[in-house]
Design a protein around this nucleic acid. Structure first.
Lengths: 350, 350
DNA sequence: TGCCGAATCGTTACCGGAATCGGTCGGTCA
DNA sequence: TGACCGACCGATTCCGGTAACGATTCGGCA
């Protein structure tokens, strides 16, 4: 028998069905829209739905076998310089595919990352998108592989976004961008402008991102027949302070670099600050370039020449690939990067 | 009879129960932990859960009457200058209260906002947090009231964050910050520094935020016995370009302002750029101040003196208030603002 | 007139947990 | 010694949908 609508409760399918004088199944079909329902019946149902202010229960629907229509985005910290752009890409693509987006943060804590993944297993999200963040590479691969398998068992797809692939035979999707190519192009640009002593500032040890960028830096040197001066590759973290400190140290030690390739735009901001403090003019005396193309880059003085990373597209692709997977679609995509020329780099002056 | 665990399926409560040799209810109690279970029984159950790699189904749980443990955050655009900070506050507080966070964006489109609210009604989110964004004030109040009532019927609480209250008798929670007070303090600061002709740049018509700030601006003038020169209050939107354009127009028309109060930091960036273009020195010739205290503020040259808005706390309070409501807790909270003195404002020089 | 298939709609059986209810068992207290 | 209490556990029902299958109606056509 159809459940009568008690006053305090939210209306259910059965309530709508009763009011419309049809069965619950018919109401369900009207909502789904993928099954023929006679027009008069349909309008009766729609009317009842409106009268009762009925809304489906997403959880009941999810439980009954339909998909959850949910993707989850996991990032270090929502306030990171470019996470917002990835989030926008993810949210937009998710919305356009009729999905809702769950947001979690880990603050770079692997333990919390694990807890979050467990939480998302409970949620049965269709995709779990892990974004960026520093990784200790020794356990990274197996951690990701374990996440991928666990999520797979719960019916979710793991997507690694801007993170290295955990290797083959792991049920995960990877969306990366061309770190090496970007660094190569930028280094080649500086070399073509006559620079020969190009410092690389902010090499964070054990971070694949850094390794790839340095690889591009080296390859560009090799292709231009220029030997890399190892003393110009300076370690550091991806912060403004680190960029400033590394620059101070470099100039204290030797002041002969004519260009500085900062590991990130944030590092470049620190580099610029340190150089300004020393009275070094940019780009007249020294050229400075960055990587990422965050909004800050165009706000700096001088506006920063940098490598553009398609953050928003990264997020979009992550959702797209996770949702429609097939034999024709690849499990790994590498998005292109390109340099953006602004005012902080100039040809070498004799 | 307990359902036997078919190979392909995810394990359920019944599977765990069967393996542990107890009833499903007992397993449920072990998980909930709020009901006595004999230690041997408990460990048997825990073991079975581990063996089967069991995870609860959040949707089944939500359906069975427990709460959804979910809050929803709705904002214009994740890449806005301070939305990320609100998002961080919301996510952190949600996480610390054991809730998951749904993220939706509207791109300032009221129609999409409505669609999003409907979607969230289906999700039965415990709280729906609407953040900032431009509002056409004529229909705003009734729209919010309608949202509040609709969500209330679906068991969700509407939270307006940084938005004006829709009035009493509406089942909504409001978390605001002191726009008028911040503008008052900043204007008073400039007046105390000897400035008498203080331009207000970026009054966006029909936006309550603007109205409140201008009110503080006026009140400070009145309290200091200084007449407001209406010609110094300039309209505009909250963008860099608008700030630059308004400054150009103002200086073309009259160049006698000794200080500029920009409606937002972003506007201030435009003001600074326009002044720099005209060779006007900041703060030697003209003082410039902003509102919001976004990261950009400290990156500008000179670093911007501005009004700090506690964005992160705003998000945190939104979740906190929505979750534990009671007769002792208020439905409306106004967070304080305060000025942050940096380098862009100086005493008036004779 | 009678058969057949398409169009519609209802019935039944879950989905995976939580809550209610009731019952067993060991021990306390008068 | 018997009433009573609290810890502990299981059967049952319900939550609000969906999928699969069955039933019914009706027009076309032989």
């Amino acid at each position: 028998m159809p459940r009568r609508s008690e006053p305090g409760k939210r209306p259910t399918l059965a309530d709508v069905a009763e009011r419309a004088g049809v069965s619950a199944m018919t109401v369900s079909r009207v909502i789904a829209g993928n099954y023929p329902v006679a027009p008069p019946t349909r309008s009766k149902v729609l009317r009842a739905m409106r009268d009762l202010d009925y809304v489906v229960n997403a959880h009941a629907r999810a439980l009954a076998g339909a998909t959850t229509k949910t993707v989850a985005l996991v990032l270090d910290d929502a306030t990171g310089p470019f996470f917002a752009f990835i989030a926008r890409g993810v949210e937009q693509q998710a919305a356009s595919e009729g999905r809702l987006c769950l947001l979690c943060t880990t603050h770079g804590d692997p333990e919390r990352e694990l807890a979050v993944v467990e939480l998302l297993r409970e949620q049965r999200a269709e995709a779990v998108i892990l974004v960026g963040g520093a990784q200790d590479t020794d356990t990274y691969t197996e951690r990701m592989a374990s996440f991928a398998r666990a999520l797979d068992k719960s019916g979710s797809r793991l997507v690694l976004c801007g993170r290295p692939s955990p290797g083959p035979d792991v049920p995960a999707t990877v969306v990366e961008y061309d770190n090496e190519g970007g660094a190569y192009a930028m280094t080649a640009y500086l070399l073509a402008n006559g620079h020969r002593r190009i410092a690389y500032v902010g090499r964070e040890p054990g971070l694949s991102t850094t390794d790839e960028r340095v690889r591009g830096y080296r390859r560009a040197h090799a292709d231009h027949g220029v030997a890399v001066d190892e003393g110009l590759i300076r370690p550091g973290t991806f912060t403004r302070e680190s960029g400033a400190a590394a620059t101070e140290a470099l100039w204290d030690e030797r002041g002969d670099a004519t260009a500085v390739f900062a590991a990130t735009d944030m590092v470049a901001a620190g580099v610029l600050k340190a150089l300004r403090g020393r009275g070094v003019r940019v780009p007249e005396d020294v050229s400075v370039v960055g990587f990422d193309d965050i909004p800050l880059a165009s706000d700096l003085t001088p506006a920063l020449t940098t490598v553009h990373v398609p953050h928003e597209q990264l997020g979009r692709e992550a959702v797209r690939l996770a949702l429609h997977r097939g034999p024709d679609l690849d499990d790994r995509v590498v998005l292109g990067t390109h340099i953006v020329v602004r005012d902080s780099a100039a040809p070498l002056r004799p």
